[in-house]
């Protein structure tokens, strides 16, 4: 049952079989969170360091709760500056953390690839909690779990991911995840927000949102960041909202039982209208609940057995 890997750095590296295994395990862990006593002793004595170089209440809290429900000790380290500013190399940082003998480092960083570099420097497990515009594997897993619960399957579903694909790690991880499990993924956004060669990740790409939404079973709306306006990736929020935002009228092309996911926090009235956000298709809160279960599953599968190199 164990994942034959030290780290979870991206969905790109995972096989469909591994994805299924993580999702199945996460389903079991949902029960633990539903209990009165939401704690199991499984990872007693293990130490998890949450190393966050980027502010993130949601993801950090979710990892922290997941670790604590498994009885692991979770330590949060928030770093406001990159190693360059501190005058310390990433290797120094890694070696210092490793000297504290953690079993797992959960890392969030605004620079793509930082978890990969860290994983090379430390012997313990590394979980990528979001790196730059690269990947956010636990988010994609919780999205997949949510969809699987609601739709009973992932294979054969039509998934539309709408918004700033270029800067979205959530989009990349979900493209990999959903396509690996047999869904058909279409990404859509302004041409300035569709990175070159995105189709090579296994999805279709279009700037026609309505085309992307046609017949969709799942819609994933990405958060739009205001500062992209300064880079001229879109002219105004008003125009963005009109052509790329999700509202009741655009939703008509999707399947009747379409579900809507959003990695949060929502810009109401921009990428998603309030009526849609509060509508019956929105699963934003299920996503949060599933986030804890998925992260417990990752901890269990990475840390729940003796290390490969352990003497038994």
């Amino acid at each position: 049952m164990r994942l034959k890997r030290k780290d979870i750095l991206g969905i790109e590296d995972l096989t469909p079989d591994e994805l299924e295994r993580i999702l199945a395990t996460a389903e079991s862990f949902k029960e633990v969170s539903a209990r009165e006593i939401k704690k199991v002793p499984t990872l007693r004595g293990k130490t998890v360091i949450n190393l966050f170089y980027e502010p993130s209440t949601r993801t950090r809290t979710s990892f922290e709760i997941a670790a604590k429900r498994m009885s692991a000790d979770a330590v949060n380290i928030s770093v406001s500056t990159s190693s360059v500013v501190k005058g310390e190399t990433l290797k120094d940082t890694a070696k210092n953390l490793e000297a504290m003998r953690p079993d797992c480092i959960v890392v969030r960083h605004s620079s793509s690839g930082t978890p990969h570099m860290l994983a090379k420097y430390v012997g313990c497990s590394v979980i990528n909690a979001g790196d730059g515009a690269h990947e956010h594997p636990s988010q994609a897993l919780l999205d997949m779990l949510t969809v699987k619960e609601k739709k009973g399957r992932i294979e054969g579903l039509k998934v539309a991911i709408i918004g700033d694909i270029t800067h979205s790690r959530v989009a990349r991880s979900n493209i990999y995840g959903f396509t690996k499990l047999g869904a058909e993924v279409t990404v859509a956004g302004p041409p300035t927000m569709l990175p070159p060669g995105i189709e090579n990740l296994g999805c279709k790409a279009t700037s026609d949102v309505e085309a992307a939404l046609k017949g969709a079973d799942v819609i994933m709306m990405l958060r739009i960041q205001l500062e992209r306006q300064k880079e001229s990736l879109f002219p105004t929020l008003r125009e963005y909202s009109r052509f790329y935002g999700l509202n009741e009228s655009k939703l008509k092309g999707a399947k009747d039982d379409v579900i809507i996911l959003h990695p949060g926090p929502i810009n109401r009235g921009v990428e998603i209208s309030s009526e849609v956000a509060d509508g019956p298709y929105s699963l934003i809160l299920d996503q949060v609940t599933n986030g804890v279960a998925v992260r417990m599953a990752l901890f269990y599968l990475l840390l729940g057995a003796a290390r490969e190199d352990a003497v038994v």
Partner: peptide, 11 residues
């Protein structure tokens, strides 16, 4: 769990 090479799947 900590001494087994492989963790059992959850039931």
């Amino acid at each position: 769990l900590g001494i087994k090479k492989d963790q059992p799947s959850l039931k």
